[in-house]
């Protein structure tokens, strides 16, 4: 029996060593590193520019990041489930165009419903092709990107679709403000926070999020556990498109118009935010809260550098370096035995 125990100890020894033997500072850095960088950058800008640390600038940053943040949160689900969605940017513009066309015909609420339904169909098609169609997520959503781009030009002829001034109810979604604790807060910022809360709870507290994480982590184990793997992959794609669609509706209302172009920026920012967000709290995997902070960081740096007077080129350069450094530092801290994944 003693021999057995010695053997048991020998089996578990390397594991405990890996968990407890690692220095405290590495553990702290892994967990809080990204958040520390965000806070320190914020403090730095506050010293560099007198206008940076103010409620109105905070509100501005939040306001400017709304659409990007929604797209990124949707994309987070797809990356969690282990795939890619390159069509999120175009999902925003196509939903926006459909919404803008439908508002005068159906009234604001039905128009929003139709636009969001369309977004869900995009996600459904992506999801079904990736699972039952056995196609790669990159290929399917790249194809979807071109298809939606074509639909956009076909519907609009390349011109913007304006929303009339009389659509006050619809414009209120993007342009209204409500007083909150004596401060004026934009309605879309409140909508963003509501969607964030819902998405965060869905991902962390419900079976939907739970199964999406399980499938993304180890699809084989999920399959053997009797989980409907395809089902949850499709759900992740539909969530991605749906939340991007909400972004499209809000964008239409904010700008009182729909633009057929300009989707590429959302896509690139979303990917940057998701991978930056994966390093938040040392999780190493994308999560909704991390994505929110990731988008916030990108927009905060943009705003700060703008105030300090850096040119656009420098801002782009900085954003790229931060992304590579943050994700690279995280990979160094979570070193795998053999690294053979290059996607």
């Amino acid at each position: 029996m003693t021999e057995t125990m010695a053997e048991d100890q020998a089996r578990t020894a390397p594991i405990t060593r890996a968990a407890a033997g690692e220095p405290l500072w590495i553990r702290l850095l892994r967990r809080w590193g990204t958040i520390a960088v965000i806070v320190l950058t914020g403090i730095g800008f506050s010293f560099a520019s007198e206008w940076f640390f103010s409620f109105s600038n905070f509100n501005n940053i939040l306001f400017s990041m709304i659409v990007s943040c929604l797209v990124s949160m949707g994309l987070t689900y797809v990356v969690i489930v282990g795939s890619f969605d390159l069509s999120v940017g175009l999902c925003v513009t196509t939903t926006s165009i459909i919404c803008a066309f439908m508002v005068p015909i159906l009234g604001p609420w039905l128009a929003i419903l139709v636009a969001l339904m369309f977004a869900l169909v995009i996600g459904l098609v992506n999801g079904v092709l990736v699972t039952y169609g056995r196609l790669s997520g990159i290929v399917v959503t790249l194809g979807m990107m071109f298809v939606l781009g074509g639909i956009n030009i076909y519907l609009t002829g390349g011109y913007q679709v304006a929303i009339g001034y009389e659509e006050t109810a619809f414009r209120y979604i993007g342009q209204g403000q409500v007083p909150l604790f004596g401060l004026k807060v934009a309605i879309p910022v409140i909508l963003l926070l509501i969607v964030f809360l819902a998405a965060h709870l869905l991902a962390t507290k419900t079976k939907v999020g739970h199964y999406i994480v399980a499938v993304g982590d180890n699809p084989m184990a999920a399959f053997y556990s009797g989980i409907k793997v395809y089902h949850w992959v499709i759900v992740a794609f539909m969530l991605s498109a749906f939340i991007a669609g909400i972004g499209g509706v809000i964008l239409t209302s904010i700008s009182s118009s729909a633009q057929p172009v300009g989707s590429a920026g959302y896509l690139l920012e979303a990917f940057a935010a998701v991978f930056l967000g994966a390093t938040v709290l040392g999780k190493g995997k994308p999560h909704i809260l991390g994505t929110l902070l990731g988008v916030f960081f990108i927009y905060m740096v943009n705003s700060g550098m703008n105030m300090v007077g850096f040119p656009y080129a420098a801002r782009q350069l900085f954003a790229g370096l931060v992304l590579i450094l943050a994700v690279g530092a995280n990979a160094m801290l979570n070193r795998e035995e053999i690294h053979l994944k290059f996607i």
Partner: peptide, 29 residues
């Protein structure tokens, strides 16, 4: 079945793995 090359969801806790696919309650975890 438990197969010889059994796999778990590595990011989940031991408890979450045991109930995986068979969790208590309705929509919420």
């Amino acid at each position: 079945a438990v197969y010889q090359d059994v796999e778990l969801v590595s990011g989940f806790t031991v408890g979450q793995n045991v109930v995986l696919g068979n969790e208590a309650g309705g929509l919420l975890v």
